[in-house]
Amino acid sequence: MSLMSLDNVRFGYGSFPTLERVSLDVLPGELVAVAGPNGAAKTTLLKLMLGLLKPWEGDVRIASRGKAGKRLVVGYVPQQLAAFNSAFPSTVLEFVRSGRHAGGAWFRRLREEDRAATELALRQVGMWEQRGRRIGVLSGGQKQRICIARALAMEPDLLALDEPTAGMDPESRAGFYALMREETKTRGRAIVMVTHELNEAYPYADRVVVLERLENGGMRCCTTTSCSGHFAPALS
């Protein structure tokens, strides 16, 4: 059962269509990399998937239930999220812990499992030691890490990441891709990741979605390539 599906979706800004005939399914436990040149509507595609934009035509379906019949939890890290207001008065721990209140759980008190999930997420991105610091004083790369940690702390069924490795050095990027791969294979999360470093992401992805420019009037279509079998999982 797919967690999210686009069926023959058409979308544009103003009267100019930017996405044409896009069909895509995202299944639990798979890592989908979305690639394409600048302005190819990769972010638009991600927002359509998440229901943040309404398509002109076609259907976007997002499952209402995730694992064990619980409400579907969606984690999203937008492209500019790490460029947040540096005056925002919040500690790293407060910020990442806020992910535990996703999926309508704003009223319940935090339990031991929430604290454990927060700690695990912060350790996964190497920011546990920084948990008491104000988020505004962190470097750009550290801000990016805590945004990802917050999404991981949600224990999402579907994780959407928009250029999550921007500003990371090659070693950190490799560690990040390995972590994402591990999240899909051991925890069954579906991850959709917009990336510019396709060569680096390719070995870890189950599928690559490439947005291509059409010849007739700058419209774009979507092609999907299966990566399964090309590379052994990097962490196996």
Binding site: K47, L50, G51, L52, R71, V73, V74, G75, Y76, V77, P78, L81, F84, F88, S90, F95, S98, G99, H101, A102, G103, G104, W106, F107, M154, A160
Partner: peptide, 22 residues
């Protein structure tokens, strides 16, 4: 008091709050 957690998420970023179910 009731909406403080949802308000925190919305204040930080409306889009991520929306995808989180706020």
């Amino acid at each position: 008091l009731v909406c403080r957690r949802a308000l925190y998420q919305m204040t930080f970023d409306e889009e991520t709050a929306q995808t989180s179910g706020v």
